[in-house]
């Protein structure tokens, strides 16, 4: 399988460690990613809240650049959602295809499937292959796998797993030796794009998620989306101020945890870029 890789804007800035760790992990697992040349932003929520045409045309511009790949691989749940929805609608709607062609100046029929790295890990590579390559199992680490909203919704377009109780990330990290806790907020929304405009609202949602993860006994939260990451990691200080609870809950991209287990050196994972440091938890684990 050959994958055309779409890193996404956040993975070049705030969440560069997501991109870095994803590349390292894929490298270890023999998954060949070739970055789509000159890709552009997916438009995220502001695009579809402003213009439907824009929200399809922007991803179409990128998708039209994909040549000779079996699938487009994404890591960010939001990019995944936007690209996948665009490709779905372009496949179904000939009139939209024509309008997009006029707007973007490119033709795109949405033929190359858009897939998330978790889907690829679970369904193309298989968890058995991951388990074989694990060098330092995450034994004793309790992880709350947080899928957020866009990875599994809407199920008619995106679902590669049960939308109400997804298991893919749990299975991948279990293969890495971690103990994935059962918890009820796997797919609750963190407020996503409201982070900038309404940090107060986001704090309430982040507090709920952090509390449920803590109550379930998790040492860390694993995420698959840079927006979730910002809201849960960076906003912990605001949560402490607004709600008086200091969680000190490390929030890692699932690729960082997987990378640790596969023996990727820390530099290749960007652990130092996290706001809430995972060091204490990981050191305790190593000592045990």
């Amino acid at each position: 399988m050959s994958y055309a890789y779409f890193p996404g804007c956040s993975q070049q800035g705030m969440a560069a460690e997501f991109d870095r760790s994803a590349r390292s992990v894929c490298d270890r697992l023999g998954i060949a990613l070739s970055e789509i040349p000159d890709w552009v932003c997916c438009g995220a929520t502001p695009a579809h809240a402003t213009s439907h045409l824009l929200s399809i045309a922007l991803p179409a511009l990128t998708l039209a650049k994909v040549k000779d790949a079996d699938a487009v691989a994404t890591v960010c749940a939001a990019c995944y959602s936007r690209l996948r929805i665009a490709s779905h609608e372009l496949r179904e709607d000939a009139e939209l295809r024509a309008r997009v062609k006029e707007a973007a100046g490119v033709e795109c029929a949405g033929e190359v499937p858009v897939r998330h790295l978790l889907d690829i890990l679970c369904n193309d590579l298989g968890v058995a292959a991951i388990r074989e390559r694990v060098k330092r199992p995450l034994a004793g680490l309790k992880v709350a796998c947080y899928y957020g909203c866009l990875l599994m919704r809407p199920p008619k377009v995106v679902a590669f797993d049960d939308p109400e109780n997804p298991r893919v990330m749990d299975e991948v990290l279990a293969a890495a030796g971690a103990e994935c806790v059962e918890w009820p907020y796997k797919t609750e929304c963190c407020g996503a794009s409201l982070s900038l405009a309404r940090p107060d609202v986001v704090c309430k949602l982040a507090n709920d998620i952090l509390r449920e993860a803590r109550d379930a006994g998790a040492h860390v939260i694993a995420v698959a989306c840079p927006l979730c990451h910002t809201n849960l990691d960076l906003r912990q200080a605001d949560v402490a101020r607004q709600y008086g609870v200091r969680y000190e809950m490390p929030v890692l991209f699932f690729t960082q945890l997987l990378g640790l287990a596969l023996g990727v050196p820390e530099k290749g994972l960007g652990l130092n870029r996290l706001i809430v440091s995972p060091k204490p938890v990981l050191e305790k684990l190593a000592a045990a």
Partner: peptide, 19 residues
């Protein structure tokens, strides 16, 4: 404003500049 800001960034650079 946030929506317009993001789209403005995309329009001028093709990608988002978070800072």
């Amino acid at each position: 404003i946030a929506n317009a800001g993001l789209l403005g960034s995309v329009k001028s650079r093709g990608r988002v500049h978070e800072m």
